[in-house]
Deep mutational scan, measured.
Amino acid sequence: MSIQHFRVALIPFFAAFCLPVFAHPETLVKVKDAEDQLGARVGYIELDLNSGKILESFRPEERFPMMSTFKVLLCGAVLSRVDAGQEQLGRRIHYSQNDLVEYSPVTEKHLTDGMTVRELCSAAITMSDNTAANLLLTTIGGPKELTAFLHNMGDHVTRLDRWEPELNEAIPNDERDTTMPAAMATTLRKLLTGELLTLASRQQLIDWMEADKVAGPLLRSALPAGWFIADKSGAGERGSRGIIAALGPDGKPSRIVVIYTTGSQATMDERNRQIAEIGASLIKHW
């Protein structure tokens, strides 16, 4: 067993022997301040990774656009098919120029040779490549099948209805392509620590998230040296922004954090800054 596999296998073990965790309302004060600064709703939840206990939450059962955070769930569904012998990570998928959609920095470079399922998941999570996500959605049967996968996990809230990039439209009061912070946090925890996926697939999923290259201005910008984070960000229309993450000190994750916002007129930089400040408060009061 590799060191990384050992780390993920012992996530519940280490967490069980940690000192009790206590909620700190100071972080919620910052979440509410972010709402004021952005002029928009902000949803927040913080779960203990081992027990699933909610440590703090704000608007945990209000719907927010998922945006690209759905790509972690998508690759979880792909990995479940791999575990069941219905898919192979090494299978190569070929596609054409007509398949390319807006923001496809990886797939646009491989029109000639195609990409493997493993490479597509890596591109979808680490670079948020939209064509990679659409190609992977095709392998599982489309958005409705991802929703069905989530329902089978016990998540009857999260739903995907459309493809990239239309799913980022974020129309107010439109339930399409949305989740709730509580539902997303619980589902992410199941994917990373539950028995739904094999140990190898859980490790692969967290490795992809740990290698995320496009979430630097968010929670990662607030992390002290030595902290662990595996995350996936999302951005959408109407001032929408979000991030889902597993993080913790001492090089291992111990909490799940989900943050979503929508309806702001603020710039992307300002949305990023507010999420980073929430992260800084979380870490300060850990």
Rank of each mutant, 00 (worst) to 15 (best):
M115H: 03
E26R: 12
E175V: 11
E169P: 06
A185Y: 00
V29E: 15
D36V: 12
V257D: 02
A235R: 04
T139N: 14
A246W: 07
A84Y: 11
V78C: 06
P224F: 02
E277Y: 06
E102I: 11
S122I: 07
V31N: 00
Q88E: 15
T262W: 08
C75W: 03
R118Y: 08
D231L: 04
S128L: 02
K213S: 05
G279N: 04
A230D: 01
K284H: 13
A266P: 05
G239I: 00
A182V: 09
G39Y: 11
D83L: 03
D33W: 06
A123S: 10
S240F: 03
E62F: 06
L191R: 01
T178M: 03
G226K: 07
M209C: 11
Q265K: 08
V82D: 05
A211N: 06
R273E: 15
D36Y: 12
S57M: 08
A185D: 00
Y44D: 00
H94S: 09
W227L: 00
Y44A: 02
V106T: 15
P165S: 08
P224A: 08
K32R: 11
L73F: 06
E175A: 13
S128H: 03
I125A: 04
V157N: 10
E210D: 15
A133K: 00
G248V: 01
I278C: 03
G43K: 01
D83N: 06
T139V: 14
G39M: 14
Q204W: 07
D177C: 03
F228W: 07
R241G: 05
H156T: 12
E145P: 10
L191T: 06
S68T: 01
L150E: 03
G141Y: 06
G90K: 13
L223N: 03
R273S: 13
A133T: 08
S51P: 03
S80Y: 07
Q88H: 14
A183F: 14
N173W: 10
E46I: 14
P165Y: 05
N152C: 13
T131M: 15
C121P: 02
E102S: 08
V257C: 07
G234L: 00
E62K: 06
G43T: 00
M268N: 14
R271L: 11
E46K: 15
D207E: 10
W286D: 02
A182M: 09
P253I: 06
S122Q: 11
R202M: 11
I125F: 00
G251P: 10
R255E: 04
A246Q: 07
E108P: 15
Y103Q: 05
E102Y: 12
Q86K: 07
I278W: 02
H151S: 08
R159K: 10
T126M: 07
K213W: 05
Q97P: 08
F149T: 13
E169Y: 07
G76A: 07
G236T: 11
A225T: 08
L223A: 11
L135D: 01
Q265I: 09
Q274N: 13
G226C: 07
P172C: 10
I125H: 03
S51R: 07
A84H: 13
